[in-house]
Every structure is written in C-alpha cells, then in structure tokens.
C-alpha cells in the first residue's frame, strides 16, 4: 500500500470539507473493497476520510411504506435487523449472502452502492425496489443512480447518507455465486411494489453493471410465475464474458436466477 493519511472527522460537514479541499482524498467506510484495492496499488488516495462512525450515517427505521437504512450500516447489521427481516425479508437475506461473515461485519451498504461493483448484490435490490438514495446534497432515484460499471450519479465529494427502500408486496432474490470469489455471476431481484408495478433488476451479468430486465417485468406483470420468465433471454451481447463464464452462459444464468427468484419471492 502506498503511503496515505488517515482522517476521522466528527461530522458529515467536516468530512465533506476535507474531501472538497483535496482531489486525491477518498471516503473510507468499511474498507472491504477500498483497502484491498489500495494493497494491490490500484488506488493510492492521498487521504482516507473515515466516515464509518458518523452518527448521521447510522440507523435503521421502518415506516408503513419504507425501510430507511443508514449508509454506514454493515451488511451484518442489515441481515440481522428484526426491522429489515420483518419488512423486507428478501433484503435481509440478500445482505446475509454478501462476502463472508468477517466481510459482513465491516462492509457497508453505502460503501457498496458508492462503489457500484458490477457484481455487487445491493444494486439489484435498490434498482428493483425503486429505492431512493439520499445524499448530503439531494435525493436520487434508483433509476438515475446507476450509470454503468463502477459509475454512479454521485458527484465529487457527495456523500451517500441513507437509502429509503419502499416495502414491496413481495420480492425475491437469487444469485449464482462465482465459486472462488463468491461474487454474483448473475443475481436477479424480482419485486412487486406496493402499487402493483413489477420490477426485475439483474446484477453480476451485464457489461454496464446492474440493469432492469424489462421483458421479464412485463411477463411477470401478466403472470407471476417461474414459467413466465423461463423463456425470456436477455441479449448475450450485453453480458459480461470472462474466464468464469461467457456471455451466452451468463444470459442463460439470468433466466435461471429469475425463475428461482420468483419461486423464492416472499411478501
């Protein structure tokens, strides 16, 4: 790891000020992606601004319509939260399947969403549930937030504060793990929202990161069943292709995971 300087500001405003004054500084949350990246010398921030302990980024609350989760909440705290388990059990289950137990104790919701790894799990939940991402400057709709692999609508120095997940009527998630890295090679989140709209989001498979499978949404809107999506294939030319699986394989996995997600869907 190249040399860096560690800062732990006491407030969101102080964190924003440090970042604003230094183009090469980066926010540090759980560090489960950033620190390994720095160790490989693929990133060399001048300063690490640790926001993981900020009270503004903590907490989980539930209303009749939505679950609101602070950006610095860990995967473990989300997976084990009775509030999340009660309101959106599929989201708790998704969080319980990220990485391994030690990673889940450190990694955070906001860190994952700010990084927008094409194989991360949360982007599928955020997009399928039509969540709202609240930053220190504004609110961003999920449909506007994800802008391609490792790219989001966040501006320089903008801090993700919390995510508001609308409570769906039912939702399901299924992913096919890369057996070595445990990242999703294809993960599909299906949901029927409170207003009856059906949304399907796919992670791990697309070249452009998470995306909505609109043909599957239409099919499930007419007929909520595994059979309805079984015959629908996403375009392989849009899929990732690598040593772990070529594009045709990944396109097929998306259909299989969609079927499983529908079967797994719970209210």
């Amino acid at each position: 790891m190249y040399e860096t300087s560690y800062k732990r500001p006491a407030s969101l405003a102080e964190a924003a000020a440090i970042i604003a004054a230094d183009d090469e500084a980066k926010f540090l949350a759980g560090g489960q992606t950033l620190l390994p990246t720095m160790k490989q010398r693929l990133a060399a921030p001048s300063q690490l601004v640790d926001i993981a302990r900020l009270a503004e980024l903590k907490g989980i609350s539930v209303s009749s319509e939505a679950v609101t989760i602070g950006a610095a909440m860990t995967h473990y705290s989300i997976a084990s939260s009775p509030e999340v388990q009660g309101a959106i059990p599929t989201l708790a289950k998704l969080a319980s399947g990220i990485g391994d137990p030690q990673v889940r104790h450190r990694g955070t919701l906001g860190g994952s969403l700010a990084n927008n790894d094409p194989s991360a799990d949360y982007p599928a939940a955020v997009l399928a549930l039509g969540a709202t991402l609240v930053t220190d400057r504004r609110e961003i709709a999920a449909d506007d937030y994800f802008q391609g692999m490792f790219t989001t609508a966040l501006e320089e120095g903008e801090i993700l504060v919390r995510v508001v997940f609308p409570i769906p009527r039912k939702a399901g998630y299924s992913k096919f793990l890369n057996p070595a890295s445990r990242y999703a090679m294809a993960g599909v989140f299906v949901a029927t929202l409170a207003d009856g709209a059906v949304r399907v989001a796919v992670t791990g498979a697309g070249q452009g990161g998470v995306f909505r499978a609109t043909a599957m949404e239409e099919a499930l809107g007419d007929n909520w069943s595994a059979d309805a999506v079984a015959g629908i294939k996403v375009d392989p030319s849009d899929m990732l292709s690598d040593i772990h699986g070529d594009a045709a394989y990944r396109a097929n996995l998306v259909s299989v995971m969609a079927k499983r997600a529908v079967v797994a869907a719970a209210g």
Partner: peptide, 12 residues
C-alpha cells in the same frame, strides 16, 4: 465481532 485484520487499518 470477527473481522479480517488484513483488511482494516490499525487506525480504524
């Protein structure tokens, strides 16, 4: 709680 100490700074 269990963590990977190779993926955490001492300062954290």
């Amino acid at each position: 709680v269990a963590v990977k100490s190779c993926t955490m700074l001492a300062a954290q």
